[in-house]
């Protein structure tokens, strides 16, 4: 497994953990308030800290396994995989943003638009790393 693929696994895991944590805080607050809660800045900051911590630890472990591979520049195949995954996740991001806009048209709730946009950004980012792993394994 190349360093780029390991890096994609680490980021995918970090985003899933962080996204699940933020979703859990929002859902717990929604249960208490019985309405769509306002943005949770503390929860968002915690989510970012989780991503950074997992990314640093994960990349350090991955690099320790094979330092030469970690320092190697991206080759042609790596670039193609990144472009292809970024291309498809960009389409997904656009679709999720449009869905968020439609949700605002239906519910006219700014807090819901905020949470929908956070979800869209996190899901498209997870999709990008998942597609990167997929293309490394399946080939481009």
């Amino acid at each position: 497994m190349s360093f780029q693929e390991k890096s994609a696994w680490v980021m995918c895991f970090a985003l899933i953990v962080s996204g699940a944590f933020y979703a859990w805080t929002v859902l717990a607050l929604a249960n208490v308030l019985q309405t769509v809660p306002p943005p949770n800045a503390g929860g968002l900051a915690m989510g970012v800290i989780i991503i950074v911590a997992i990314a640093i630890f994960g990349h350090a472990v991955a690099a320790l396994g094979n330092p030469a591979d970690a320092n190697a520049p991206e080759d042609e195949r790596d670039r193609l995989v990144v472009w292809r995954a970024g291309n498809l996740s960009g389409v997904l991001l656009g679709a999720l943003c449009m869905l968020s806009i439609v949700s605002y048209a239906v519910f006219e709730n700014g807090h819901l638009l905020f949470h929908a946009l956070v979800a869209g950004l996190v899901i498209s980012q997870i999709a990008e790393y998942a597609l990167t792993i997929w293309y490394y394994r399946r080939g481009v």
Binding site: P39, W83, A85, N87, G90, L93, L121
Partner: peptide
């Protein structure tokens, strides 16, 4: 096409994150 779409998706993401932070 792939390279341009991939880079544009990062630009859209940055715009989305800035909109979120501003909303706070």
């Amino acid at each position: 096409n792939m390279k341009s779409l991939a880079a544009a998706s990062y630009i859209t993401s940055i715009g989305g994150y800035l909109a979120l932070v501003w909303f706070l």
